[in-house]
Nucleic acid binder design. Structure first.
Length: 456
RNA sequence: GGCGCGGUAGCAAAGUGGUAAUGCAGUGGACUGCAACUCCGCCAUCGUCGGUUCGAUUCCGACCCGCGCCUCCA
């Protein structure tokens, strides 16, 4: 029973060895709350939620922090656009984010720190960096001097010169070195700001994570996750800030990064206008369908996303819930020797774990008595680690699909009518009722016990 | 220019030095009054060209194609 994780730092899979098995620490970069989130934002949340569940099955205490960035130029711009108060806007979207994440059956992280509630900690960290000679003040800005850190670039595998060679952003004149980044920047009177030793201002983009990790999780943490695009500069800069503030002490032992999502074969981007917002998708699909899709590919792979995929994922879940239909609820049991559990231990191989769900479900279906109950418990244990199959099966099949809006009462009334037609040997009439229901998105299934139905 | 990733059946997606999981779709059969569900079966030689090897989809090299990052970005 050993967890193996792919560490971006070493570019290889490594056996996970916690700093303290009694307290696992994991941090994942959360959203900047200036808008609703899209499916790409949901991927790390689902992936690392699954890792959180897995870690909780292995260790007694897992501290998982996922932040809310509620101060940022994007938020300020958006607030100006909408003529809305900045804090009201960020709180509104933070709540929307929590709703979306809950709909995807993500557990609440142990800690949800807000950037604006950690300004003193951030200022304190900047002070230390200035005192230690890793940062300097220029025109009201405090900048991190990347040349003061020999290891800068270790995560992304770039040298300073390489980075500057391809830089496509104009270098601010006050920077001592083009690669230096902002820790603290001045705020104009109309902009939000906090008093600091360098005047009224606000934190730079990278600072908050370092400060909040230090406060809530410690100077060195086990796992840090996020999207691949955050490797540089965000995570590189977090390393620089934290290591230099802590006199070179390691910051994160295992860096995990999830891949991107393509929509209908193209990158999801603002310019293509093909963002898939989570709440829009939730209008048409159960959150579990989105979650199933997100876990059907390995987290480090680029993933294809399309309407067809959502539809087929829904049918895939129908198959699993179909096996569970008629089974009494049971207590989930995690079988630590099972292929599914081992797959998850192997760098979170959720596609293989999902395939094991089918194997277990079919085995359960074929079994009886205690063996059947045991298989059901194992199935639910594995599904639970991935946050799947948590709904009542009967309820699952009543979930509205597409534009079908026939009521449960009407469905049952028609089923009764068909039953009578069958008793009268009026098969044409019975078939007509069944076809009418099918046209309304309701599928009938006859069995010895009678007729059951599902929307599909 | 620098760094990195990927190309597996209609779609999606694992995986392995010894002829390729799983799901959806399709298809043949059983079951059924007919269906649906379920069950049994079928459905790929892994981008191209070389090399290493008894043997490569899996290792190495070249090439083609697609993609990401290089201080907004999951």
């Amino acid at each position: 029973m050993s967890l193996v994780l792919y560490n971006t730092l070493s570019r290889s899979k490594q056996l996970f060895t916690p700093i303290d098995p009694q307290r696992i620490t994991m941090y994942v970069c959360g959203p900047t709350v200036y808008n609703r989130v899209h499916i790409g934002n949901a991927r790390p949340a689902v992936v690392f939620d699954t890792l959180f569940r897995l870690l909780q099955s292995l260790y007694p205490n897992v501290q998982y922090a996922r932040n809310i960035t509620d101060i940022d130029d994007k938020i300020m711009n958006r607030a100006a656009e909408l003529d809305e108060d900045i804090s009201a806007l960020s709180e509104r979207y933070a709540q929307a984010y929590f709703e979306d994440m809950a709909a995807l059956n993500n557990l609440e992280p142990s800690i949800v720190p807000y950037a604006t509630q950690h300004i003193p900690e951030m200022i304190n960290m900047v002070k230390r960096l200035v005192d230690k000679g890793h940062a300097y003040v220029a025109e009201g800005n405090v900048l991190f001097a990347v040349q003061s850190m020999p290891d800068y670039g270790v995560l992304s595998g770039r040298s300073l010169d390489d980075m500057l060679a391809g830089a496509r952003v104009e270098v601010a004149s006050y920077k001592q070195y083009a690669g230096d980044f902002v820790l603290w920047k001045p705020s104009a009177d109309h902009e939000p700001g906090w008093d600091s030793p360098w005047g009224r201002g606000r934190p730079g983009w990278h600072l908050e994570c370092s400060a909040m990790i230090e406060k809530h999780l410690g100077e060195t943490i086990d796992i840090h996750g996020g999207g691949q695009d955050l490797i540089f500069p965000h995570h590189e800069n977090e390393i620089a800030q934290s290591c230099c503030a802590h006199d070179g002490k390691p910051f994160t032992n295992y860096w995990l990064h999830n891949g991107f999502i393509n929509v209908e074969g193209e990158k999801m981007s603002k310019s293509l206008g093909n963002f898939r917002m989570v709440n829009d998708l939730l209008d048409q699909y159960p959150g579990e369908v989105l979650r199933y899709v997100l876990l059907s590919a390995h987290y480090r792979s680029e993933q294809q996303f399309s309407k067809d995929l959502l539809d087929s994922a829904w049918r895939s879940l129908d198959t699993l819930y179909g096996f569970l239909r008629g089974q009494s609820p049971c207590n989930a049991v995690i079988n630590r020797d099972s292929a599914g559990f081992k797959a998850l231990l192997d760098d979170l191989n959720s596609p293989v774990a999902i395939s094991e769900l089918y194997r277990l479900a079919k085995q359960m279906h074929a079994a009886s008595g205690e063996a059947k109950d045991a298989l059901q418990a194992e199935l639910m244990g594995l599904a639970g680690l991935m946050g799947l199959l948590h709904q009542d099966p009967e309820h699952w099949f009543t979930l509205a699909r597409g534009d079908s809006d026939i009521s449960v009462e009407d469905i049952e009334r028609l089923i009764a009518k068909r039953k009578q037609a069958k008793l009268d040997k009026d098969y044409a009439g019975a078939d007509q009722v069944r076809q009418d229901l099918l046209d309304l998105g309701v599928v009938l299934e006859d069995s010895r016990e009678g007729t059951s139905w599902r929307r599909g």
